[in-house]
Amino acid sequence: MKHLLFAFLMLCITCASAQEFNKEIKTENGQQFLVGQINLEGLQSQPYGNWFQNRYENFSPDETMVALFKEKLAEYDIKLFLGTWCGDSKRESPKFIKILTAADFPMDQLEIVALDYRKDHYKTSPTGEEKGLNIIKVPTIIFFKDGKEVNRIVESPLETLEEDIAQIMFKKNYVPNYAY
């Protein structure tokens, strides 16, 4: 009986601490968007799949550039902050994920966080993943190594996503848009 009670208690703790993925908000005027931690399944679900899949499939990464940073990229953890309501996020996020796929990036090292756009919750997530990270524009792609931020791409690349990633990987003097 003790083992059964212990197993039940552990299950309750696990369920309580598990992150909810792909939480959707529907506003009174019928708009819907994702908030908090999301995954590729969330981006591929409707209505988000309408813009995500098309842009993902129609983008061809620069394979030469990807080959340059592919090995180094796997040493990083990446946080992608986006808004499923944001035109810039809709443009850049599918391309960025396609680049990660082309680079065989370990997707368990990618955290995707969708931010709110409602007035009282603007650019926040329900569990606060953005706190302390100075997220002023979306998308914001932050590269971490050994738990420390190395650099970021903010809103749009300076050149192309591939070129900007390569500059970050090779520690060039990369200064993102809206540098703080």
Rank of each mutant, 00 (worst) to 15 (best):
F96S: 12
E111A: 12
M107K: 12
K70S: 14
L40Y: 02
L80S: 05
A74F: 03
S60I: 04
G87T: 07
N39M: 07
F81E: 04
W51N: 00
K119I: 05
A67H: 02
E41L: 10
I99N: 05
K95W: 07
D104L: 09
L68A: 02
S93H: 01
R91H: 14
P106K: 10
Q53G: 10
L82H: 14
K98S: 09
C86I: 06
T124V: 00
L80Q: 01
K98G: 02
G42C: 12
N39D: 14
K123G: 03
D104P: 14
K70W: 01
F59R: 08
Y56P: 15
E57P: 01
C86M: 08
R91K: 15
R118T: 07
Q53L: 15
M65D: 08
T101V: 10
P61N: 10
T84H: 05
I99C: 09
F81T: 04
Q44F: 00
H121G: 06
F52W: 00
Y76I: 00
E41G: 15
I78D: 04
I38F: 07
G49T: 05
Q109L: 07
N50F: 08
F59N: 05
S93V: 15
P106S: 08
D104Y: 09
L40F: 00
N58K: 14
F52H: 02
P94G: 12
Y76D: 00
S93Y: 00
T84I: 04
E71N: 10
R118K: 10
S60K: 06
F52A: 02
I97A: 06
R118I: 01
N50M: 06
P61L: 07
L100D: 08
L34V: 00
K123I: 02
D104C: 11
L110E: 11
L110K: 13
L80W: 00
A74D: 10
D108H: 13
T124Y: 00
P94L: 04
Q44N: 12
A102M: 11
A67Y: 01
S93P: 05
N50S: 10
E63H: 10
Q46W: 02
E75P: 07
G87I: 01
P61V: 06
E63M: 13
D116R: 02
M107F: 13
Q109E: 10
H121M: 13
G83I: 03
N39G: 11
I38Y: 04
R118G: 09
H121L: 12
K72N: 12
F59D: 03
F69D: 03
W85Y: 04
A102S: 15
N54K: 15
R91A: 13
G42R: 12
Y48Q: 09
D88Q: 04
G83K: 06
K119T: 10
L73M: 14
L68P: 02
G42D: 11
I112V: 15
P47M: 04
Q46R: 13
T124L: 03
Y56R: 10
S60A: 05
E111V: 13
Y48L: 02
K95N: 14
N54Q: 14
E111F: 03
E57H: 05
I112H: 09
D108F: 08
K95E: 14
A114T: 09
D120C: 01
A74Q: 15
P61H: 07
L110N: 14
A114Q: 07
P61Q: 07
Y117A: 03
W85C: 11
S93N: 12
Q37E: 11
C86R: 09
